[in-house]
Amino acid sequence: MSEAIDTAGSRARNTAPIDPEKSPGRVIAGRCSWRLDDREMPVRAARKLTAEMLRSWTVGGEAEDAALLIVSELVSNALRYASPPIELALTLIPGGAPGSREVLIEVMDADPRLPAKRSPGESGGFGLPLVESLAKISFTTCGSGKTVRALLITWDG
């Protein structure tokens, strides 16, 4: 059984998370994924791989900057608090409005514990609120792991 939890803490059992491969009417323009925990300097690798993929999809400027920040934060959290394997997946989806596209950023790990929101302070706690200010985020548990998703809307031009 999977459990989807949005950032407001609402729980929805057996609710399908954002999954562009299974969503009717959603066209995927591109998808790629990488295992990160076996790489040297995995956060740096994740940023490099993300930047290269976004450029190949002609996603740049503020959207690229936001995506790189989101990837850095989510991968850092997975490395710090979760268990391997840790994977990063990017999906480019044509958006609903003319000229818009969505970049779905997913970080999967083998720890079913959901990210905990903390009050920002000296020891951290700034990451999830920052990601939440840039994208719609959700968490899904399934079996012995979880997926953290961030959906970033971009505009052409």
Rank of each mutant, 00 (worst) to 15 (best):
Gly145Phe: 07
Phe139Gln: 14
Glu122His: 12
Ser138Gln: 14
Leu114Trp: 06
Gly127Tyr: 03
Ala150Arg: 04
Glu122Ile: 14
Gly125Thr: 00
Phe126Tyr: 14
Leu128Ala: 10
Arg149Trp: 05
Gly121Met: 10
Gly121Asp: 08
Pro115Arg: 10
Ser119Ala: 10
Ser123Met: 08
Cys142Ile: 03
Pro115Met: 10
Asp109Thr: 09
Gly125Asn: 01
Ile137Asp: 02
Pro120His: 01
Leu134Ala: 15
Thr147Leu: 07
Pro112Phe: 04
Ser123Asp: 14
Gly124Arg: 11
Ala135Arg: 02
Thr141Tyr: 03
Met108Trp: 03
Arg113His: 13
Thr140Phe: 02
Cys142Asp: 04
Leu134Glu: 14
Pro112Glu: 02
Cys142Arg: 06
Gly145Trp: 06
Ile137Trp: 03
Leu128Val: 10
Lys117Phe: 14
Lys146Gln: 11
Ser119Gly: 02
Leu114Val: 13
Ala110Leu: 03
Gly127Leu: 04
Ala116Gly: 07
Thr147Gly: 01
Val148Asn: 04
Leu134Tyr: 15
Leu151Gly: 06
Lys146Asp: 01
Ile137His: 01
Pro129Asn: 03
Asp109Leu: 12
Lys136Ala: 12
Thr140Arg: 10
Leu152Glu: 12
Ala150Ser: 07
Cys142Glu: 11
Thr140Gln: 13
Ser144Phe: 06
Phe139Met: 15
Arg149Ser: 15
Lys146Gly: 06
Arg149Thr: 13
Gly127His: 05
Glu122Tyr: 12
Gly125Met: 00
Thr140Leu: 13
Leu130Met: 14
Val148Tyr: 00
Asp109Ala: 10
Glu132Gln: 06
Gly121Ser: 14
Thr140Lys: 09
Lys117Tyr: 13
Leu130Asn: 07
Gly121Lys: 08
Ala110Ile: 01
Cys142Gln: 08
Pro115Val: 11
Lys136Met: 07
Glu132Ile: 02
Cys142Phe: 06
Met108Pro: 00
Cys142Trp: 03
Leu114Pro: 11
Lys136His: 09
Leu130Phe: 07
Gly125Val: 00
Lys146His: 05
Met108Phe: 04
Ser119Thr: 12
Val148Ala: 07
Gly145Thr: 06
Ser144Tyr: 06
Gly125Lys: 00
Ser119Val: 09
Phe126Ile: 09
Pro129Gln: 04
Pro120Ile: 01
Leu114Asp: 07
Ala150Asn: 02
Pro129Arg: 03
Glu122Phe: 13
Ser133Cys: 08
Leu152Thr: 11
Gly125Tyr: 00
Pro112Ile: 02
Leu114Lys: 14
Gly124Pro: 08
Val131Ser: 08
Ala110Phe: 02
Cys142Met: 05
Leu130Arg: 09
Thr140Gly: 04
Ser123Thr: 10
Pro129His: 06
Leu134Trp: 15
Ile137Val: 15
Leu128Glu: 06
Gly124His: 09
